[in-house]
Design a binder for these strands. Sequence first.
RNA 1: CGGGAGGUAGUUCAGCCCGGUUAGAAUACGUGGUUUGGGACCACGGGGUCGCUGGUUCGAAUCCAGUCCUCCCGACCA
Length: 492
Amino acid sequence: MGKVITSMKEDYAQWYNDLVIKGELADYSAVRGCMVIKPYGYALWENMRDALDKMFKDTGHVNAYFPLFVPKSLFEAEEANAEGFAKECAVVTHYRLKSDPDAKGKLIVDPEAKLEEELIVRPTSEAIIWNTYKGWIQSYRDLPILINQWSNVVRWEMRTRLFLRTAEFLWQEGHTAHASKPEAEAEAKLILDLYADFAENWMALPVIKGIKSANERFAGAEETYCIEAMMQDGKALQAGTTHFLGQNFAKAFDVKFSDRDNKLDYVWATSWGVSTRLIGALVMAHSDDDGLIMPPKIAPLQVVIVPVYKSDEQRSAVSEKANEIVRSLKALGISVKYDDNDNARPGWKFAEYEMKGVPVRIAIGARDIEKNVVEVARRDTKEKKAVSMDGLAVQIQNLLNEIQQNIYHKALQYREAHITKADNWEDFLNLLDDKGGFIAAHWDGSAETEENIKDISKATIRCIPLNNEKEEGRCIFTGNPSSQRVLFARAY
RNA sequence: CGGGAGGUAGUUCAGCCCGGUUAGAAUACGUGGUUUGGGACCACGGGGUCGCUGGUUCGAAUCCAGUCCUCCCGACCA
């Protein structure tokens, strides 16, 4: 007994919290809005990070690291961006504490140690990076600059949720500088494709690539692209964004370069990021009432082996076989744990590893050894079957691939079943309340209409899908002419 | 930041309204034994500054004030 998960149906929010806490991805901390990422959760992040990092490097990007603090004067240089983040910035005003003369053993902020200029804890790093790039760029020969950084950022959120919205989170932020507009635009789209590739092929998370409306656009960007995912409660979640920044930051930070004709021009820029929020997406897209379901390709642990025995002789016979299996799986690069902890019985272990979403469980006992088989159970379907020990490792490898595919297709099927067209306002509202998911509807393209729809329905335009089908219609809200449907949803 | 709920053993909670032995239960943990194919059982044992600070009182987990953290709803949020 012990860890029981609230069912998804009963209380979706509590179900999510239970998965994160009881699946040991993260823990609450003594700091408001900040969480501790536990080893199991961090291992997942490391796997995600490693896969993405390789993809970045394969497309010519390099890693660097920029400071956590941004002087206020730099931060405010690009006005739109600064304004967009102003309300959620942590600010460092002092650099020293001292003993409290009125309370022994307590510390107070030393009023003598006030900073001349406040430091902003980065909510994103465009400002410090573009201030730096200014010194690195003189000619087109210095371009492009294709830098990524893995870092933490702080956004002081009023209401937080584990992984989905926390005051501090981990992410990667790419910041590139280019000699031409088309090149920068191509970069923003290249990374968008890379993100979608990662989400779908590694996280088994189907996403829709699209463009954000002006209201949802990144402050300081000319165009924001995104990948949007669908959760099992019918709410959308932005899984990643890339921004074509135009020359906004170059102008704000005066970053110019000489082109081949020795003409001065401002540099073209992009930025892009995905964060630990993706872990929240992973949890909500795949898991069930028994716990997490990890896609094999990024699972912290792909296979667990649980021994079943009645005597010491059986135990050592089982262990011998199990260790053989461990070796054969490791030889194929599969991560595997042989859990021979004698304190927990098999049933307990089964439940525990299901909770943590380990894709494949192998149970092996005396009965199996006699028949030269093991019991293989897959987490995604809960199916169990006897599999011959001959060539087991390859079978497991295939099974892991199959699970990866199955999880993806299951999520895709859900997503496809939750894109619904609405052609009048009443249907639109009913669909949001009764079914959820993406609502494909006509919109007249105005920010005002978008605001009104949001105020009434709580749904936002998630994106205008790339390669969207053109279709004449009437705006769902105003009845004004529209040339295409956009995707609305309530979102995280 | 507004409304609501909560914080007592590692965990889940009871006790609080109506202040008064040594603060309980289940589960987890330790030891020994029996067990082991879906969250085992018996015996013994260890474990708590009752979130924190202050106040009222002879006496506070219990009453009062402040404060911190968490959850839910709302506002806010590229």
